[in-house]
Nucleic acid binder design. Structure first.
Length: 568
RNA sequence: GCGCGGGUAGUCUAGUGGCAGGACAACGGCUUUCCGAGCCGUUAGCCCGGGUUCAAAUCCCGGCCCGCGCACCA
């Protein structure tokens, strides 16, 4: 186990789930500190992507019915047909293997694969024979209700829960694009072989924003806020660019302004959360790497001890999801966009003459009329296919007229830009980037340099001596800080130096110490985690001072005289 | 899922068939202390199951978990 993982487990950030029963790969528990850090990350995310966008947050079930994932494409894209070698045990994705070895496009069904293996006597690279093909499904399956039940799946992404009630959400926004809908919650993928600690989990936390836009206008009103930010981009040809986002759009590195806006906003968010800029880059998915729903995708990647790890995916899902759900549910998931002024359109219209059609075509007349009305123009005759029968209709049965119509707007299926955040990976990356060692008084010190507003324990209150009068004041102050909404811990165990080290290791930015002078004049000291410097403040100034320090990166010296204790 | 290497207190680690030891941490006490001080004491462990043996942490088999490589990662 790496040094940092050892600390995270020992100090209560996170650990493996189900430990006393031997554990299970791909699941972790967040301990008291890890849970606090992740919650702070979620709150920061809300601030960026809900409060400060035209966006709302919803909450939908983690179980989805089968229909949802048939429509979304996950049921097929997620279920691969695999073939396993009987002698060496290797598993291949059947369609890929067959394409590579035989250059045949095979339907990804068990029957088709079986047939190809039989016909071509296909063998493994080790010359071993293949077992019968099987489905490997990366979604967790479940049954809803008793008995046979209804087939359901644990959601592989929170996004589908946003697409399905799209009409209600669009109503909520009074059908006015653009708008965003977010969801923070769990998602599940039955990974074949979860590895790398918290990086690949079977149950994980996502924060997703689905930002619905008019496809003709993929811009964002606040693009200028981030346009001049310099950013490291790696495009799909592995070319690295160090450019501003404005340049990235102008040069066509990023397809459009809206993607670029979310790339910029994501970077700002990650920096505020505590990731280091020089360990952060954005990489475009290669053509064969993109999900089935995406037309373009940029990942934020953080450099960790596992290498570059994907922590955010920013995808242009176009109208894929809403179109698919329209098709499979039969509900119209388009939005009517009115023109500023109604426009007059001259159109040629084909007007069927029912009194002539009726007597001649009898029961087919109605259908023929409907088909004629759909035509934009017609010549001397029209050939139609009615109930599988070809029918020739000459111009005596209809009239072609030039008409002028008022059109008030049009229906469009919005496109959706999706920034999708892997909260577990971000939480872990923050911890790695914050982990540091320095030397204080010739002794190595481990310190977690979390951003002050991210720390799960913000202040530790420490009586210098374990004596009643010190402890009493310390407990009072602890109580006051808690009432003021500051995450505070009280600790009187061990020497003062030992306690400072304890809180340095878990990333607590400030320690408040009650010392001899406190008993004389009521003042206390505040110690800064990063510099180990102390200032002395009046007790009544303590809460406002801490609040300001915790919400900024101001130097502690701005708030009081540096205090040096007399070491004996 | 395959191959290789691992799994001993909360953490790190010693122990190749014969009483499971240490360090750090934690807890209680002494000390009354401003950066992991010291002293005394306490808690706490052989991943799980089966086999071989008089005797298994140790040898064998199976499983689970961890690390690395391969495959997988929509």
């Amino acid at each position: 186990m790496s040094e940092i993982m050892e600390m995270l487990v020992r100090r209560g950030y996170l650990w493996q789930s189900f430990e006393i029963y031997g554990g299970m790969a791909g699941f972790i528990d967040y301990g008291p500190l890890g849970n606090g850090l992740r919650r702070n990350l979620e709150d920061l995310w809300r601030d960026f992507f809900v409060i400060n966008e035209r966006a709302v947050e919803i909450d939908t079930p983690t179980i989805g019915i089968e229909e949802v994932f048939i429509a979304s494409g996950h049921a097929t894209s997620f279920t691969d047909v695999a073939i396993e070698c009987n002698s060496c045990g290797r598993i291949f994705r059947a369609d890929h293997f067959i394409k590579e070895k035989l250059d045949i496009e095979v339907d990804p069904t068990i029957e088709a694969v079986k047939e190809v293996i039989r016909e071509y006597e296909l063998r493994c690279e080790c010359e071993g024979e293949f077992k019968d093909p099987e489905h490997i499904n990366l979604m967790f399956e479940t049954k809803i209700g008793p008995g046979k039940g209804k087939k359901g799946y644990l959601r592989p992404e929170t996004a589908q829960g946003i697409f399905i009630p799209f009409k209600r959400l669009s109503d909520y926004f009074r059908d006015k694009l653009p708008f965003g809908v977010t969801q923070i919650g769990r998602a599940y993928r039955n990974e074949i072989s979860p590895r790398q600690g918290v990086i690949r989990l079977r149950e994980f936390n996502q924060a997703e924003l689905e930002y619905f836009v008019d496809p003709r206008n993929k811009t964002h009103p606040n693009f200028d806020d981030v346009a001049d930010d310099f950013i490291t981009l790696v495009d799909k040809f592995d070319r690295e660019h160090r450019v501003t986002l404005r340049e990235a759009v102008e040069k066509g590195i990023i397809a459009h302004q809206l993607l670029a806006y979310f790339v910029g906003k994501t970077r700002r968010f990650l920096l505020k959360a505590g990731l280091q800029d020089d360990k952060l880059r954005f990489r475009q998915h290669k053509d064969d790497e993109r999900a089935h729903y995406a037309v373009d995708c940029w990942d934020a990647e953080a450099l960790t001890s596992y290498g570059w790890v994907e922590i955010v995916g920013i995808a242009d899902r176009s109208d894929y999801d809403l179109s698919r759900h329209t098709q499979f549910s039969g509900e119209d998931l388009s939005v009517f966009i009115p023109y500023k002024e109604p426009i007059k359109v001259k159109k040629r219209k084909v007007i069927p003459s029912m009194e002539k059609l009726g007597p001649v075509f009898k029961d087919k007349a109605k259908k023929i009329a409907e088909m004629l009305e759909k035509l934009e123009d017609a010549g001397d005759y029209v050939e139609l296919e009615v109930d599988g029968e070809k029918v020739k209709v000459s111009s005596e049965y209809y009239e072609v007229k030039e008409v002028e119509e008022e059109v008030h707007g049009e229906k469009i299926i919005p496109h959706v830009i999706e920034p999708s955040f892997g909260l577990d990976r971000i939480t872990y990356s923050i911890l790695e980037h914050a982990y540091d060692k320095d030397v204080v008084d010739g002794e190595e010190r481990r310190v977690l340099r979390l951003k002050r507003w991210m720390a799960p324990v913000q202040v530790a209150v420490l009586p210098l001596l374990s004596r009643e009068e010190f402890e009493k004041v310390a407990l009072e102050i602890t109580d006051e800080l808690k009432k003021a909404g500051i995450f505070t811990e009280y600790d009187d165990s061990g020497s003062i130096g030992r306690r400072y080290r304890r809180y340095d290791e878990i990333g607590t930015p400030f320690c408040v110490t009650i010392d001899h002078q406190t008993l004389e004049d009521g003042s206390v000291t505040i110690r800064d985690r990063d510099t180990t410097k102390q200032i002395r403040v009046k007790r009544e100034d303590l809460i406002p001072t801490l609040k300001e320090l915790l919400n900024s990166e101001k130097d502690i010296e701005e708030f009081g005289e540096i205090f040096r204790a007399n070491s004996s």
